[in-house]
Design a protein around this nucleic acid. Structure first.
Lengths: 348, 348
DNA sequence: TATTGGCACTCGAGTTCGATGAGTGCTAAG
DNA sequence: CTTAGCACTCATCGAACTCGAGTGCCAATA
């Protein structure tokens, strides 16, 4: 239905316009392109093509007598087919390697430092989404009696990440019982993911034996209570949000405010990323393709990363649609691969 | 040296100017004040007084033919003596009581929710600084062996706050030894603050006995290692930062960026607050009185709060100098008292 | 048929100019 | 000491104008 839109020449011109616009931030006119064109096209010819590109929705004019700027559709076409793949500068690679090697064995620190690196090297917003709780691997678990019916459960992941949750129980436990329950869980289940453990506990609960063994009963009780809560919980770490303010296209304070408000709604952003990123590999999402108006004029570059073969977290960048995609893609790609390999053949 | 600055009339006029400016955001002229003055002063007289106030530095003119606006010195004088103390609206009080009672027993949650309440009720930025680690009271401690020479130490506070730290040890410990060390520490020291515990461990270390008892030795070793690190660490929780963007006086994106950058430098802000708040009671700090240029046109309203009689954390607001100080003070005062009483006769 | 030179046209950005009006400082009279 | 009066200042606003980059269209050309 959409008329066959683009021949080779149009494509080249579209690309030139976009590259130029990304570079300068100014609308680009036909003369500029004509001069750049190596096959010596006249500006009039370029104008004709540009008019077509405007009609098909790849370019737009801010006003009648200005040059053209890319539309979001134009950016989409560009990132989908017109990019010159670029390799990461050795300098950047060195910085990344160096920073990551220093915290390699500490998952928690890696999650702190990665968005920082991304933000620094790109001058945009860097982010990481941690894997869901479900996939963390039990190293140690501990129940602490705080009040009569309130028990604090502390969980330690294989890589040293600590999480905890208050659970309300209906019968009172002595601390000694809680200790025993914790020890039992560690002995029985250390090395399994929380998802697996949950499944086993459910199975145990079904067994008759559980009805009689007091220890087992409390183990099952406490364990399922801990595990029933948000198994999908994931943390989003954002860094370098203030970089956005450097770009003149976001000078409007009201838009900016709304943007920063969505930055604070982390779970919303996580869902968004999740929805956009089912397949492996780096992807670009143009802000207008989401349903969140606050992301107008913004683009996401994101890639899932793997922990133990399983795809589980996301790492990426957020910047204005007018960003150097090649560089951003190279950066995110490299980091996600590095992260996956760090987490998959772990030194733990 | 500074000429006796202000008689009763000047004071009244200063106050009227400030109140009016806070209300409208517009420079206020002599006519406006003359009309408000109940003793029927003419605008010319008011002008004379205003000229004096400008000379003494309490007021300023944005340009020759505009009204006057308060200087920071003017605000200082105002908050120090001219405020009509105002009591918190019962509505607000109800909201606070309700929100806090729902999380009363959970210190961690209280620290999350308090800046939110402050921010919501004031439309400014709300914050809390948590008490330093040193003052938390031991409930439970646990060492988990992660790698040969890396031990994770998990600490649970009396009120259920969990903190943890990786420690590097030079000899290898078996998990069983670590368990014993943890149990020993809990039995011996539960109920004491970390500061006290540290002192006791130092004392133990000095005793000969420690040299021979293997358990004691590792306890002392691990315990001091954990405790030696940042005893003064405190967390700053900020909420509602985007509210700042609503005020027209911060329309400049560059200033805003710098401000948000200082928001991210939390430890810097903590130090700042600390320096300004030695005495108990609510205090107002005008931004220009600090040495941080990013706080220009901003004011802090802050109060320390007490945990177990000891003054230890800070709670407050951050907003434009042009804020309703009476309301802000009432709000912060009430919350800090409430918080102190919640934390001082604890239900734990 | 595709390309191109030429030309009229559009429109934003920047500048100047004058009117408006709020608000001042000063002075002289009460 | 107060105040009426008056000249003065200056930001803001809008109208009128210029400038120039860039366009769309058309007729001539290869």
């Amino acid at each position: 239905m959409q008329e066959k839109p683009i021949d080779a020449r149009a494509e080249e011109i579209l690309k030139k316009v976009i590259v130029n616009y990304i570079l300068t931030g100014e609308p680009v006119g036909s003369r500029t392109i004509a001069k750049l064109s190596r096959e010596g096209l006249s500006s009039a010819s370029v104008r004709n093509v540009m008019a077509d590109l405007e009609e098909t929705g790849f370019l737009a004019q801010p006003h009648t007598s200005a040059g053209r700027i890319p539309t979001d559709k134009g950016y989409r076409y560009y990132v989908d087919g017109l990019l010159d793949p670029v390799r990461l500068a050795p300098r950047d690679k060195a910085i990344i390697d160096e920073s990551l090697s220093r915290v390699a064995s500490e998952f928690g620190e890696a999650m702190e430092i990665i968005p920082k690196i991304l933000s620094r090297l790109s001058s945009h917003v860097g982010y990481v989404v941690t894997p869901p709780i479900r996939e963390t691997v039990l190293k140690h678990i501990e129940f602490v009696r705080l009040q009569e019916k309130r028990v604090l459960c502390v969980f330690v992941d294989r890589s040293g990440v600590v999480s905890h949750r208050m659970i309300e129980v209906e019968e009172e436990y002595a601390q000694a019982d809680l200790d025993r329950a914790g020890r039992y869980l560690v002995e029985e289940f250390a090395g399994l993911t929380l998802g697996d453990i949950r499944a086993r506990l459910v199975a145990l609960m079904a067994q008759e034996k559980a009805a009689f063994d007091v220890l087992l009963k409390s183990v099952v009780n406490l364990g399922t209570r801990y595990l029933n809560a948000e198994q999908d919980e994931r943390r989003l770490v954002l860094e370098g949000t203030t970089n956005i303010m450097k770009h003149p296209e976001f000078a409007d304070m009201d838009t900016m405010r709304r943007l920063f408000e969505t930055f604070e709604e982390k779970h919303h952003l996580v869902n968004l990323l999740d929805r956009c990123l089912d397949a492996p590999g780096v992807r670009v999402v143009i802000g207008s393709e989401t349903d969140d108006p606050a992301l107008k004029n913004l683009a996401l570059v994101a890639s899932p990363y793997r922990v133990d073969q399983r795809s589980s977290g996301i790492v990426g960048l957020l910047g204005p649609t007018r960003m150097e995609y090649e560089r951003a893609l190279a950066l995110v790609d490299y980091i996600s691969r590095l992260l996956s390999s760090l987490l998959t053949s772990p030194p733990h």
